[in-house]
Design a protein around this nucleic acid. Structure first.
Lengths: 256, 256
DNA sequence: TATAATTGTCTATATCACTAGACAAATTTT
DNA sequence: AAAATTTGTCTAGTGATATAGACAATTATA
């Protein structure tokens, strides 16, 4: 159910934007346009309603609408052409499957022509409360932390931190850098198969690190998945926290 | 990993707030404080750092921090006491389980002392493309739409629209109003058991309707789950779109 | 009891966000 | 060719946001 251009036959329309909320009108309008596009209200290359129409629709000045549009042009979502109109560029959201056999690359097959995982940094550290619980280790046990980014067709689609018991998976960082695949790396350590034991999802505004890592604009939303993967005999092998840009990714929960 | 009060031993700290982003500084700081609380940086009734410390931490004027705090006091998250400090009130996020047997009431048992579903409105309409696909019906088939709100301990925790084939479930709105339970209502129509066939999750900023329905502040985030429930023989019985306030709810994906 | 720490209130000023109106520039339609 | 449509640019005024500083009021601490 789109927001823009919806007709309500004289009825008062929920104007959908709030003043004095701490979020500027142009940012709210930009977000709604993004939402409309994601909801499929506009085909790719379709024209947005003219600025005056949008201004009337939202009950704001035309300049305010222009601010919203120029932000989206900056983000690469829209293209404005003088005399012609403003057009939609953006692609659809990727649908990232989550289930018992969640795998990055295979999950996005068919939706993208290319995808891979980049290892950003790795470090050995002592397990925090949270990590220790996830991996079923004593607090303070040494663990390896990998910081990775998932990319599909050149765009960042995920940003993850994952932890592994250091003793059992010594050197997994090097293997990961070499193979570019979690599944392949774990196989080197004798883990031929693994299953998703638990996943907890939440959402929040992107922080400064997210903005940089995922190439987002301030105010963007990230989906956060905290998960534990286990071997087929139930032994935890990986604890992870993954952030997905909500504007580019939706999570499809598949049968486990 | 909390944001507030983190020590970085002289290193430059990622200030985490952005100017000229369309989101006012006080709103960004309020959101980060909320996030810190949700991340468990503060126990219930714990004191927030004093205003001057927060102002220094974020690199803003003390008055700006005060705006953020007063917004959170308004939302019922913090309590400020002159001469003493500012204290955390808010409860932890509810963990809402999603799996093959997702049920509202049973899912929140143990976390809340009371929960129920309120039927807000119902209507018979012809199935949109999306609803028709979900229920595996011809487009335009008559369906019943129920608008409901889930409440736990008096706080709204979900807001859903759900659709049912009108012919098969005629009068389900009345039954729903009477029983206050989806599961019980379906049982009246011979559906003794049902399973979650598919769930698609996304996140976005709350729109005006969400703000009103879920009692949220502008700028809040909602998690959106679009799901299809089927009978044990695979026949779709319900298509639904549920919105959860991200600040109060996290989704726990349980084994299907 | 005096001092320090902390929140509450006030004034003043600068900048950003939004409104209002006019007109230019480019494109499409008549 | 002319008119209509649409985006681009400019000026000016108003209200919200943010900074700066001072001091009051309340509570905890020495």
């Amino acid at each position: 159910m789109g927001v823009i251009g919806a007709k309500m036959a004289g009825q008062q329309m929920a104007s959908s934007i709030e003043r004095r909320s701490g979020v500027s009108l142009w940012r709210q309008i930009a977000d709604q346009i993004l939402h409309s596009i994601a909801a499929g209200d506009f085909a790719e290359n379709a024209a947005l309603p003219p600025e005056v129409a949008l201004a009337e629709r939202y009950g704001v000045n035309r300049h305010t609408v222009r601010s919203a549009i120029s932000a989206l042009v900056q983000e690469g979502v829209l293209r404005a052409e003088q005399g012609r109109g403003t057009f939609v560029l953006s692609r659809k959201r990727l649908s990232y499957p989550i289930g018992a056999r969640t795998r990055f690359s295979t999950g996005l097959q068919g939706q993208t022509s290319e995808r891979h995982i980049v290892l950003l940094t790795s470090a050995v550290e002592s397990a925090s409360q949270r990590v220790a619980e996830g991996l079923d280790l004593a607090r303070g046990t040494e663990v390896i932390r990998l910081e990775t980014r998932g990319e599909a067709d050149g765009r960042p689609v995920s940003r993850a931190a994952s932890w592994y018991e250091a003793k059992r998976f010594a050197g997994i960082d090097a293997v990961m850098a070499e193979t570019g695949s979690i599944t392949a790396s774990l196989r080197r350590f004798g883990v031929d198969d693994y299953l998703r034991q638990s996943t907890v999802l939440s959402a929040r505004h992107a922080d400064a690190a997210d903005l940089a890592d995922l190439n987002l604009q301030p105010g963007a939303i990230v989906l956060v998945a905290v998960a534990v993967n286990v071997t087929t005999d139930g032994r935890p092998v990986q604890f992870s926290e993954t952030r997905f840009p909500a504007e580019r990714v939706e999570l499809k929960l598949s049968a486990l």
